[in-house]
Computed example of a mutant assay.
Amino acid sequence: MDKTNPKKAVKELTMLLMYLTRFKERDYFGSDLDMAWKGYDFDIINELDKEDYIRQGSHRSKSVAITDEGMKLSRELLAKYNISDWK
């Protein structure tokens, strides 16, 4: 198995941690959003936002919304790293 370079690993593991520690929050229209706290490297957060895996909204907010693409990527990363999802 090929090794993952450190920058890519940090990005993938950040996405995984956000997914595994996510919580539900209702938006203004009553829809449930998968949210995560923003306590990770800001450059990585900005990259994930730019790639549409998360949405920061305001850069001042302390949480991010995980997009459908981010949820899909996270589930793929669970399989890649052989981590069980929550039941």
Rank of each mutant, 00 (worst) to 15 (best):
K50C: 03
S31P: 01
I44R: 05
M18K: 09
A65K: 10
P6D: 15
L78V: 06
E25N: 04
W86R: 13
G30Q: 04
I83H: 04
K62W: 12
M15A: 10
D41P: 08
K11N: 04
D34M: 10
K72S: 08
S61P: 00
A79M: 09
D52L: 08
A79Q: 05
R75T: 04
F42G: 10
Y28S: 15
I83T: 06
T4E: 15
L73V: 07
L73S: 08
M71D: 10
I83N: 01
R75C: 04
R55C: 09
Y28T: 14
R26F: 09
L33A: 01
L77S: 05
E76H: 09
E76N: 11
K7M: 10
T4H: 03
G39Q: 12
D68P: 01
R55E: 15
I44K: 11
Q56S: 07
D52Y: 09
E12Y: 07
D68H: 01
A9M: 12
S58G: 02
F42V: 05
R75I: 01
N82S: 14
M15K: 08
V10Y: 09
L78Q: 11
I54G: 06
E76I: 01
R75M: 11
I45M: 06
I45S: 11
K7S: 08
D52Q: 13
D32G: 02
F23E: 09
K3M: 12
K80P: 01
F23G: 07
K87H: 11
I66C: 04
Y28V: 07
K3G: 12
R26A: 06
E69H: 10
T67F: 05
D85A: 04
S61M: 09
A79V: 07
D85E: 14
K80F: 00
A36E: 03
K38P: 00
L73N: 07
D68C: 02
G30R: 04
L48H: 09
Y53S: 02
Y19E: 11
D43C: 06
S74F: 07
L77Y: 02
V64L: 00
N82T: 09
D52V: 10
T67V: 08
K3F: 15
Y81T: 04
E25Q: 14
I66S: 03
L48Q: 07
V64Y: 02
S61N: 13
M1I: 04
T14A: 03
E76L: 06
N46F: 10
K24Y: 01
H59L: 12
Y28K: 15
I66P: 00
L13R: 14
L20A: 06
K72T: 13
A79N: 10
T4L: 14
G30S: 02
S61V: 00
S61D: 13
E69P: 01
E51S: 05
S61Q: 07
D49C: 11
R22S: 14
E47H: 07
S61F: 09
P6R: 12
K24S: 02
E47P: 03
M71N: 12
L77V: 02
E51T: 05
G57I: 03
Y19H: 08
E47M: 11
A79C: 00
K72H: 07
F29N: 13
I44N: 11
D85H: 00
Y28H: 12
K50N: 12
G70M: 06
W86A: 11
K38N: 14
T14K: 05
E25R: 12
M71G: 08
S63Q: 13
